[in-house]
Design a protein around this nucleic acid. Structure first.
Length: 207
DNA sequence: AGCACGATGCTCT
DNA sequence: GAGCATCGTGCTT
């Protein structure tokens, strides 16, 4: 069970987004291990990407994006929701991958509790959104700036089986406002594992 | 299965 | 003061 190393994240953001599919996000909380296989990601490629938070340059919020890769960028949205990103590309290049969905493979009982009323959902729909998985894994502002690559941290990503190309759907990013201009609005930078892959994970969560 | 809408607060103009 | 990288509910097909 090896952590993805910093060099994994120090690559082009779109590549990292694609290759994060199938990897295992792990959260250690209250002495328990909560984990899931990543099924959806989205690339935000830097200042020239007008959908990326770094488009406005360095601000207090985006400061961690300018730091080293492999660090968590967690921000608050819509007055309710936390979003987990992982910083990509070499230091001083502000870009990140948004983790948008996963299938829980460890700690299901705790996750269902954390999700409250929605905790009774089918496993495939329990954490199929960025705010859902943040709530499920107890991710909030306390983890902003957390290094995922150092040893002994409470949040990291473990190497797991890659998702074959036949089981990946590529499309435009979800949830961007209409004010985002082309070509950024339509860049195919959302990556999602197919229902077939999800079924496979549900059938054999360990691999 | 799909659309409309309200909740709720931080960030930057 | 506007605009959000959203979710759950409740209503319509």
């Amino acid at each position: 069970m090896s952590r993805l190393p910093r060099r994994f994240f120090a690559r082009p953001t779109v590549t990292v987004a694609r290759e994060l599919l199938g990897q295992r996000l792990v959260r250690l909380v209250d002495g328990r291990r909560l984990a899931g296989i990543i099924t959806e990601t989205e690339a935000y490629t830097g200042p020239s990407d007008l959908a990326c938070h770094a488009r406005a340059g360095r601000t207090p919020r985006t400061a961690v994006m300018y730091g080293p890769p492999g660090v968590a960028y967690v921000y608050f949205n819509y007055g309710l929701h936390w979003m987990l990103n992982v910083i990509t590309e070499p230091k001083d290049r502000p870009a990140a991958v948004l983790i948008r969905g996963l299938i829980v493979t460890e700690g299901e009982a705790v996750v269902r509790q954390r999700r409250g009323r929605a905790g009774a959902a089918e496993l495939a729909h329990l954490t199929d959104g960025p705010a859902k998985l943040a709530q499920a894994l107890g991710i909030d502002r306390a983890l902003n700036g957390q290094d995922l690559c150092a040893p002994e941290t409470p949040l990291f990503i473990e190497r797991a089986a890659a998702v074959p190309a036949a089981q990946v759907r590529v499309g435009p990013r979800v949830g961007l406002g209409r004010s985002v201009p082309e070509p950024w609005l339509s860049e195919p930078w959302n990556f999602r594992a197919t229902a077939g892959f999800v079924t496979h994970i549900l059938a054999s969560p360990s691999g």
